[in-house]
Design a protein around this nucleic acid. Structure first.
Lengths: 203, 203
DNA sequence: ATATTTTTATGCGAAACAGTACAAATGTCC
DNA sequence: GGACATTTGTACTGTTTCGCATAAAAATAT
């Protein structure tokens, strides 16, 4: 990236690394229960630095959501690699989702967007916007892959790719909720398998 | 109910009505962002009365969740009335869910459990327990109806009722998330319809 | 060197917060 | 009527919260 030396004292920290640390805090506690003291401790930045670099708590949260969204999109596109069979694509998609959702110390954390942004969406319009856009992007990415599958004859011609894609991402939403509710990895993997069977047909 | 007159000054309010008012507050703001002042204003009770009657904020929240869970179970059992075809049962189930989820002033509120308890589940064990139990109860109720449907020949004999039931409730989780994320009623109704088609087969 | 610009650190302050002490109010029991 | 038990309202405590004011620190520009 462009590295033009700016005047003034240089930053002693990496901004995106700090957002990453903040993401962890928000993921565990949610937006409302995450205090600036928590965030300050996790990022090793004192409050004025946080404000100077990112704005207020909501701004920082939106940055964290946006980073998570971008990372998730990359992972999704990778899982949906069109050189693989659709069936495998879906299995990979759920697999990676679970790997993320189940990563937690005591209780699983689910999905940062689904499990923490949802509650704020009513009263924070910008959060609702990011959440809505993220869900739509996910739906769309799956739809594109399914449309290709229909074209290739992997799925019946009469299939509605948009409807089926929205059904497929439905499973991810539920995996996120159920993981955070404490369901076991085995139960979630079984759910994902039966979802693949239902969507692609039993092999 | 038993109405044994207790000694001491009688309550000037209806406890379950107060919990109902509290439910609305938690539903809009979530647990963490709901303050005792909000709850006190909504219930028209001052804080000492709240503490005396229900305990602390978490206790009150758990009461609200429990009431919601019970109401939802009644509505679900009613939607799953075994004198109707399964297909209609599922349609009714999603219909009623949407009627609840979309009821909101500005933005839809989704499901109290899925949309507000999920975020707290990591750090509040009792909330996680109620949430997990609620999801399991819903799965079970649907499973029972599906098992009956298989017995009656409404569904193929080889169907796994438990797996299919969990897939069916998956749709409700997603409807809750999507409603709160701002999706339109039309989009959600379309999703519900295609879910029924996928689960029961296109008619 | 001196001025300028930006980041860091300490710490302030005002508001919101959860929870409670205490006394007045309102009922039952004897 | 008087003792007792419970609820209610006011006001309080101590903590946590967010956001900022202020000044020191660390770099560049001239």
């Amino acid at each position: 990236m462009m590295d033009e030396k700016k005047r003034g004292r240089p930053r002693a920290f990496d901004a995106s690394a700090a957002i990453g640390k903040a993401r962890e805090v928000f993921w565990d506690r949610g937006f409302s229960a995450a205090s600036l003291d928590n965030l300050s401790a996790a990022t090793s930045l004192n409050r004025p630095s946080l404000y100077n670099a990112f704005g207020d708590k909501e701004d920082l949260y939106l940055d964290a959501l946006e980073g998570y969204r971008a990372d998730s999109m990359v992972a999704l596109e990778d899982a949906l690699d069109p050189s693989l069979p659709v069936r495998e694509n879906l299995a990979r998609m759920y697999d990676r989702a679970l790997a993320t959702y189940l990563h937690g110390d005591t209780a699983a954390r689910g999905c940062l967007l689904i499990s923490t942004a949802t509650v704020e969406a009513v009263r924070h319009e910008r959060v609702r916007e990011v959440l809505g856009r993220s869900l739509a992007d996910f739906d769309r990415a799956i739809e594109d892959r399914l449309a290709l599958a229909i074209e290739r004859g992997e799925l019946p011609e009469k299939t509605d790719p948009k409807a089926l894609a929205r059904l497929a991402s439905t499973i991810m939403h539920s995996l996120a909720v159920r993981a955070r509710a404490g369901e076991t990895r085995e139960a979630l993997e079984a759910l994902a398998r039966s979802a693949v069977d239902l969507i692609c047909g039993v092999p």
